[in-house]
């Protein structure tokens, strides 16, 4: 992967290269649909839009700041315990995010329940720390973290949009399907609320994405 080349020379803050770090994870290097990481929480927290958005922001904050912190101290980390150091940094950030959610958005934090804590085990985080932050300067690492968090979050929000719309007839908690539809016999699809349909939705997203981007198709 091109982005893993060590960036050596001095770049302006929003150079094209840095911008690419932000943009690539949204499509061609998307952590969920291309690298198939972080699927577990993508299934669990996408029944409604609001928890999905909060989860997306939480993951973005954690990836961005863990990347930043690890990149800042990357030269001091003894290589033999580097995974432990990464884990401790991630765990500390996740606990802080979890505490903040409990204090300021209590109802959402109840819905996210264990999945905030499980951000620690989200493969995207460790993947970015090992592959990028250990070898790059703080600023590109920070952007890379934001990019990957948003890439993950974008998929989460798309899935949540369809699951909430088809499963509960709502978008972000507001009713959008007119009453007349229900009177005419329309029924919310209860299957959309269950986790398997999140997997199906991811499948459809991957299908659409691959058919639009021939680069992603493997040759048989």
């Amino acid at each position: 992967m091109s982005e893993e080349k060590i960036i050596k020379e001095k770049d302006p803050w929003f150079s094209p290269r840095n911008f690419k770090l932000l943009k690539n994870p949204l499509n061609l290097e998307n952590p969920v649909t291309v690298q198939v990481l972080g699927i577990c929480s993508a299934l669990a927290v996408t029944v409604q839009m609001k928890p999905a958005i909060v989860m997306a922001l939480s993951v973005t904050v954690v990836t961005a700041f863990s990347n930043l912190i690890i990149a800042l101290i990357r030269d001091t980390i003894p290589s033999r315990i580097r995974i432990i150091v990464q884990l401790v940094v991630v765990a500390a950030l996740v606990i802080i995010v979890d505490q903040l959610l409990k204090a300021y958005v209590y109802d959402v934090s109840k819905k996210l329940s264990v999945f905030v804590g499980l951000i620690i085990t989200n493969c995207i985080l460790m993947g970015r720390l090992e592959a990028f932050a250990m070898a790059n300067k703080p600023w590109p690492s920070f952007i890379d973290g934001i990019g990957n968090g948003l890439g993950y979050g974008a998929i989460l929000v798309i899935i949540a949009f369809f699951r909430e719309l088809l499963g509960s007839g709502k978008i972000y908690g507001f009713d959008v399907i007119p009453k007349a539809f229900y009177e005419a016999g329309y029924v919310n699809n209860g299957l959309m609320i269950l986790p398997p349909m999140a997997l199906m939705t991811i499948g459809v997203i991957i299908w659409i994405q691959r058919s639009k981007n021939p680069v992603l198709q493997e040759d048989n």
Partner: peptide, 21 residues
């Protein structure tokens, strides 16, 4: 170095988490 590094790291993080909590 590894021992000192781990101890310092754990102490710093423990203190910051306590303050947040």
């Amino acid at each position: 170095y590894i021992f000192i590094y781990s101890v310092v790291m754990v102490v710093v993080i423990a203190i910051s988490l306590t303050i947040v909590a």
